[in-house]
Design a protein around this nucleic acid. Structure first.
Lengths: 331, 331
DNA sequence: CTGAAAGCGCTAACAT
DNA sequence: ATGTTAGCGCTTTCAG
């Protein structure tokens, strides 16, 4: 049989469609009697609201789009997405909002996202790992509320966000090395158009000051291979380093391999610090001393900001959460 | 200004709404002249179709729901999801279908999914890592087409699927050990209500026959910690093992830690084989010899099956893709 | 507190 | 090949 409509429910309950609709939408003006009759009718008929019809009249869609800006191949390497996705789905489900996922890895993708959002197909936008100067930030300004999980470099004032205090994390690791008595501390950063790339380095520089010279800094792109490459480069350039702060656990795993190949013992000869406290941090040998980011909380706050905006807040402030040093065996 | 409707486009192009609609829906009966005028009008007005309105009349929603059945905490540990998600988003986007994500980790979640699907909010269902006897398999039978990425144990005839040939993978690794001259080969399996848990063990048993005794088999739950635990147990139970096939790379990382703690050298004393060829396989020491699953192809085939069903296919056959042995240093 | 009625924007069947 | 029109199922005034 066809799916029941609000009309069927109204008929079964002996009221008008309007009354059923009012109940469904939490309007207070429904008599107890009507309420009971309608609720019974709903469960008897197995009625489920037709979102398309509702959407057509309310002009809201009941869905939020999550935009993954990472180039496709790398999506695979990042251990952080699943937490964010999981938290977002949960929180949105509570509000009866569904989460639709889109990719924004190349120009075609991005255009699709813009069309989708401007076409009014989503009530809000959740940005993930958006890079500096991403052209479509502007395109989103005229649409529904957008927030980012992690700062959008260069658009911090435009797109509200929640993020871990990455700079603090950088400081925590670097201070730990200093307190351990390490003298030549190097760093392998992430891409310099991402907050994690920039701010972890800032924290490093905060502590080391002028000792943080160019020679001690190499850049990676978050992949393990890039960490290995950067470490090799660092070793060639400055053989006497006794500690290295790597901006992600995955890259740190690569650095570990390079150190092993070079015959350096970890942590005896060189201390290695990672970032993320992801699952790789435990599978390396030795297990990584790293910085834990409150990922779940960051995701939670991001969604909270978005919901506040959807509920009509004019303005929300960024939320920045502290990181934490996790000591294991690599440093 | 308000978003333009099909009416505005029709007016701007000097044709009727029906003609615009026909063009939009690929109907062949549109004159070249009208076509040009309409296309110009569309780009001038910035028109984007209102999916809700379309959905209301076509009874299709333009979205596919992906259901993640893994209990929440574990979602985090599995390195395979992102590939599947990425491939699915891509392929669906080409058909202008959007991907909505739902969790089915607990009873409440599952009920939500069933309501959603039966409420007609999706044109198709994509199941991920559904466990044996998952109660809501039945609930899905009356709704839109559903397919699974990976077999659904116990419902292989009910839910079409694409999957890697996990049993073959189990055979490949075990044969490799045998050919290497290993004599006491143990196995750490995944959960026995998942295809990966069952079939990788079947492959192991295919090769070893009656030599695959209970004493040589321990069970894990895909987590690294469980791999470590199972390895310790195996070592206590059968100290003379010289090879172990671990059903996932992550668990293998745990096994490696247990072997190191027990003072066994890998691969000299004990060969270790993983499964998945995930990123951890490269970050362990030594890097893991493992089985590669054609994840992207599996995801692709899964989506293809779903699309075929949506397009009206009465029946589709399961697709099973071969795995491949990847030799590194752990065996 | 409730019923009636007017659309929301679109597709598809029917005319022409 | 194209215009006209009848809804799709719902929310939301507006009366009462």
């Amino acid at each position: 049989m066809k799916r029941p409509t609000i009309h069927d429910v109204a008929a079964a309950a002996g009221v008008s469609r309007g009354t059923v609709s009012r109940l469904l939408n939490g309007d207070k003006y429904v008599s107890p009697a009507a309420r009971v009759a309608i609720e019974r009718a709903i469960s008897e008929t197995g009625y489920v609201v037709n979102r398309a019809a509702r959407s057509l009249v309310t002009q809201r869609t009941g869905s939020i789009v999550m935009v993954l800006s990472e180039p496709h191949e790398k999506l695979f390497e990042d251990p952080n997405y699943s937490t964010t996705i999981r938290v977002a789905i949960r929180m949105l489900a509570e509000r009866d909002l569904s989460l639709v996922m889109m990719l924004a890895g190349d120009e075609g993708d991005r255009e699709r996202v813009v069309r989708y959002v401007r076409g009014g197909h989503a009530d809000g936008v959740l940005l993930l790992s958006t890079h500096a100067g991403d052209p479509f930030i502007d395109a989103l300004r005229s649409g529904p509320p957008a927030v980012s999980c992690g700062a959008v470099i260069g658009s911090e004032g435009v797109i509200p966000y929640a993020a871990a205090n990455e700079r603090l994390g950088g400081r925590q690791m670097t201070e730990y090395f200093v307190n351990q008595g390490r003298r030549r501390i190097a760093m392998i950063t992430g891409p310099m158009d991402t907050p994690g790339g920039i701010q972890r380095l800032e924290g490093f520089a905060d502590v080391l000051g002028r000792k943080a010279t160019k020679k001690l800094i190499a850049h990676g792109d978050w992949t393990q291979a890039s960490g290995e490459r950067a470490m090799t480069e660092l070793l060639a350039r400055t053989p006497d380093i006794d500690a290295v702060f790597v901006a992600s656990d995955l890259m740190a795993a690569g650095a570990l391999a390079a150190l092993r190949a070079a015959g350096r013992r970890v942590p005896d000869d060189v201390a290695v610090g990672g970032f993320d406290d992801s699952s790789v941090a435990l599978s390396t040998h030795p297990p990584l001393t790293t910085i834990r980011q409150p990922l779940a909380e960051v995701a939670q706050e991001t969604v909270r900001l978005l919901l506040a905006l959807i509920d009509g807040a004019e303005h929300v402030d960024p939320v920045i959460l502290p990181t934490e040093l996790v000591i294991r065996e690599s440093a």
